[in-house]
Structure formats: C-alpha cells, structure tokens
C-alpha cells in the first residue's frame, strides 16, 4: 500500500472537456493514494485536484463508445483517398499525398493499439465525476480492478448477490409500480447538470444539415466532371446554406441529449465545410493572381475559376474528390445516427 504522502499512478490519461479546451489543454490523470483517489487536472502551469476518499466511493462505471471506431473509419477513408490521389497525380503530388497517407496511417495504428474508447464516471453520495483519463476501455477496466480491493478494504465487502438484492429491493420499493425495474430513475431523477441533458432539442436543424451534406457531395462530384458557371453559383449557395445550418446545429446540440458521435460529426462537418470553402476561395484568388487581366471583374474571375479542369489540376481534383467522399460519408452517417437518436427515448 502507498504511504501517507505517496501516490501510485493509475493507467490512462485524457483531456478534460471544458470551455477553454481548445485554448488550454487540461490533461487528466488518476493517482491512488493511501486513503483516497486523486483526480489531477494539469493545465501545464497549474494543477487542480479532486480527492475521492475510498470510503465515500459508491460506484465506478465505464462504458465503451463508438468514437474510436468512427475515427478508424475516417482515417481509413482519408488514407485510401490520399493513396488513390497519389496514384493519379503527377509530380510533385506523388510525394506529398503518400506522405500525408503515411501520416494518417500512423494515427490509425496508434488508435488501434490504444484499443476501444470509453466514457467513465465515479459516483459518491454528493457528486458524479466524469473521469476523462479513463477514455480507453482497457484502462478503465484495469483501474476498476486496481481500486476494487482498496475500496473494499475501506468499506467492507458485499457479495455481488447482496449488492444486486439490495439494489433490487430499493428499486422495487421506491419506483412507481407501473414501471419495470431498472429502467427509470428512482430518487435523484437525473445526474448533475454537468453530465445530464439540459435542453430538449430533438434535432430539427440536423434533419436539414445531413441531407445538405449529401447535396454538397453531389455538387463536388458534378464539379469534377462538368464546368459550368451555373454549377459554380449553385455550389456557392449550397455550401453557404450548409455552413449556416452546421453552425445552427452546433449551437442547438449544446446541452442536448445527443451523443458524442452525432455531436462530433456536426463539429467535424462544420470544420470541414470551412476548410473546403477556404481552399476553394484560395484556388479562386490564386487563379485571379495568375490572370491579372481578370482581377478587376468578379464575373470574369468566376468564369476563369469555372473553366478550371480538375483533370488538369491535381490539387483541385484532390480537394473535390476528398470533399465528395467526406460529405457523402458524413451525410449518410449523420442521417443514420440521427434516426437512431430520434427513435431513442432521449430524442423522442
């Protein structure tokens, strides 16, 4: 056992979610002390501590999530696309695209080696604490196995049968008669606001967003094979409307009962839409710079941009192929996840 002032590092490290997560990365780790579990949040220059005494810990729950699988699929698609483009493109792209594919492959291998992702929380009589460091299921299971004996030493031991029997008794005693056991909350109806949903948003903006993403995929695909000013105008309108709906969806999903997959998909779609728009705008400006005669007129510049043939421009081809694939995959995945969410009790 540890001494009074020493701690044992527990497996797993992760990033704490929070308002400043994008600016300041708060790393989380767990340490096992003599009589308490220490949750340490490190911003790089400061540390914050939360202590959970073994005698107060009521439960530790860990659940696998699909985040890791989704990331594997996205990385796989990106690797395949970059490999494909590197075969099609000439110099110097046949060096750049394989390098990007190798870069993504490294992430894929690391993600596979780290194992399935998970979400975990610790429960005491007065608080529910998410444990960001236990973001991989194998680490969460290891930590539970390490903590079980010390918690049982502090609290005494109850057999699994006794725990289930006591839980069943309480559930039967405190629950409305018409509701089946173990399916509804009992006394404290919901977890604290930090973990429970606070809005009853049912996904109206997402219903518009995901078909629009599929439309963006169609635009990107058509833009590869057809060069017409009408298609360029249609593309500008479609992408602009999609960006607006992506922003509205990202705002409305905050604090709702939506799960990580749907939330992450919306954010990644918004980020990709902005990156795609910037890339196309960059190509548009670059084309103008290369043809100074057209710089004075927006219409001339648009015509010039429309006349660009992706088959003669590997970069434009790469951007549009990648975009068509990304919009299609995220649009369809979004529609599937949204259907699942709306048919669940949380989205109904």
């Amino acid at each position: 056992m540890t001494g009074k002032d020493s701690y044992i590092i527990l497996p797993g490290r992760g990033l704490k979610k929070g308002g400043t997560a994008l600016i300041v990365r708060t790393r989380a780790r767990l340490y096992m002390g003599a009589d308490h579990l220490l949750c340490l949040y490190n911003t790089g220059y400061t540390e914050d501590y939360k202590r959970f005494y073994y005698k107060d810990i009521q439960a530790i729950v860990a659940s696998g999530t699909s985040k890791g699988k989704t990331l594997n699929i996205v990385l796989g698609v990106l690797i395949a696309l970059h490999a494909l483009i590197s075969f099609l493109a000439g110099n110097p792209w046949n060096i750049i695209f394989p390098s990007i594919a190798v870069f993504f492959s490294l992430f894929l291998v690391i993600n596979i080696l780290l194992g399935p992702t998970s979400k975990s929380y610790l429960l005491t009589a007065v608080t529910t604490e998410e444990l960001p460091s236990l973001c991989r299921l194998k680490n969460a299971l290891k930590v539970i196995d390490l903590l079980r004996p010390v918690i049982e030493t502090a609290q005494g031991r109850l057999s699994t049968e006794d725990i289930r029997l006591k839980s069943a008794e309480i559930q039967m005693r405190e629950m409305p008669v018409s509701v089946p056991a173990g399916t509804r909350s009992i006394r404290r109806a919901a977890p604290s606001s930090s973990v429970g949903p606070v809005s009853n948003y049912s996904g109206i903006f997402h219903i518009v967003l995901f078909p629009l993403l599929v439309l963006c995929a169609a635009y990107s695909a058509v833009d590869i094979v057809m060069n017409h000013i009408a298609i360029t105008y249609a593309g500008i309108i479609i992408i602009s409307v999609t960006v607006i709906f992506a922003i509205l969806s990202a705002i409305k999903q905050h604090g709702s009962a939506m799960q990580g997959g749907l939330i992450g998909l919306t954010w990644s779609a918004l980020i990709y839409l902005l990156v795609h728009s910037l890339l196309l705008y960059g190509i548009y400006i670059f084309t103008g710079i290369m043809n100074p005669a057209s710089m004075g007129s927006q219409a001339k510049m648009l015509l010039l941009y429309t006349s660009l043939d992706p088959f003669g421009n590997p970069f434009l081809m790469g951007v549009q192929v990648l975009s068509a694939a990304y919009y299609f995959v995220s649009g369809i995945a979004g529609l599937v996840l949204l259907k699942k969410f709306r048919s669940s009790p949380r989205g109904a």
């Binding site: 005698k55 107060d56 810990i57 009521q58 439960a59 530790i60 729950v61 860990a62 659940s63 696998g64 429960l123 005491t124 009589a125 969460a140 299971l141 539970i144 079980r148 918690i151 049982e152 609290q155 005494g156 031991r157 109850l158 725990i163 839980s167």
Partner: peptide, 9 residues
C-alpha cells in the same frame, strides 16, 4: 458497460 458498485451506495 462495466458497473462496479460498492457498499457505500
């Protein structure tokens, strides 16, 4: 899901 419950509950 792994739910580990302790007597403190």
């Amino acid at each position: 899901v792994k739910a580990e419950i302790f007597p403190a509950l």
